[in-house]
Design a protein around this nucleic acid. Sequence first.
DNA 1: CACCACTGGTTGATGTGTCAACTATCTAGT
DNA 2: ACTAGATAGTTGACACATCAACCAGTGGTG
Lengths: 158, 158
Amino acid sequence: MSEVSEVSEAEWAVWRTFYAMRRQLDRALEDQLQRDAGISGPDYEILLSLFESPQRRMRSRDLSARIGWEKSRISHQVTRMENRGLVERSECEDDLRGTWIGLTTEGRRAVLGAMREHTTAIRNLFFDVLTPDELASLRAVSDRVLGAINPPLCDEAS
Amino acid sequence: MSEVSEVSEAEWAVWRTFYAMRRQLDRALEDQLQRDAGISGPDYEILLSLFESPQRRMRSRDLSARIGWEKSRISHQVTRMENRGLVERSECEDDLRGTWIGLTTEGRRAVLGAMREHTTAIRNLFFDVLTPDELASLRAVSDRVLGAINPPLCDEAS
DNA sequence: CACCACTGGTTGATGTGTCAACTATCTAGT
DNA sequence: ACTAGATAGTTGACACATCAACCAGTGGTG
């Protein structure tokens, strides 16, 4: 299953550039959020999910499923955000184990202040510098890499 | 400079896939290092740099320049790794402010145990699923995104 | 009902990353 | 030689991410 697995110098050069791009893109978007709305990337993910939710509130477990974080990460993040007044917790009537996470006025203000500039940043740093062909190529590549990561599971036997 | 900045639904779909790929690729490689050598990604970056250095040791500032981390991050990471016996600090004769970071026997063992499998993982999850054209496209795209992030600086005037 | 596995969520410990403040040394201009 | 400013590195505080342990409520099945 695993061959000799050589990687040429030219391939390493692509890998390093790709790696640098991923790091710097994350950083640039993080900086933009901090600058324009005083929030972090994780803050934004939570706030955006709540904002797009019909009731402006979600169950912790649904946030977890939507964003793809484990439950303890949600809980810690929400605690920090609650302390800053961006969200608020409330009890769940239906299921006494549950917790609602709701957007506060402050949280709503923050996400509204962040969205436009964030979208602009993604457009400027990403979409604007890609040709349609490259965009299609990147989509195909991303799908294939994801496929390689997540168990092809056609043959799990060892 | 900033237009209306709309992003179509198709574009968002590409963005989300690209985003998921970046996260999951990081995670998969991190897991592989942990599994095969009991080290983290940051550990590996330090260890590999030291290993590829002629003397198997580097000045903190050179590590910083090579990996692209700020000095305090290097210092914290080295402290943790020193506690686990992967690296060791020693004084610098030439410059009394300086510190050498050297690979220990344990550190050498760890990096040797990690390298082969890490390379294989990168090949399996990345290079093997890209065509030569896609690789070239990705290289071009990465360069252009990096160019967009780092100040074109041709016209900084406001 | 009684039991038991599961689910929803919190908490604490540890590792990671950033920023600001600090110490110590080096270097250059005078 | 003196001194101002740059450089090298450490430290502490805080935000973030993961893991394991835990508690409480839910929902079967006997």
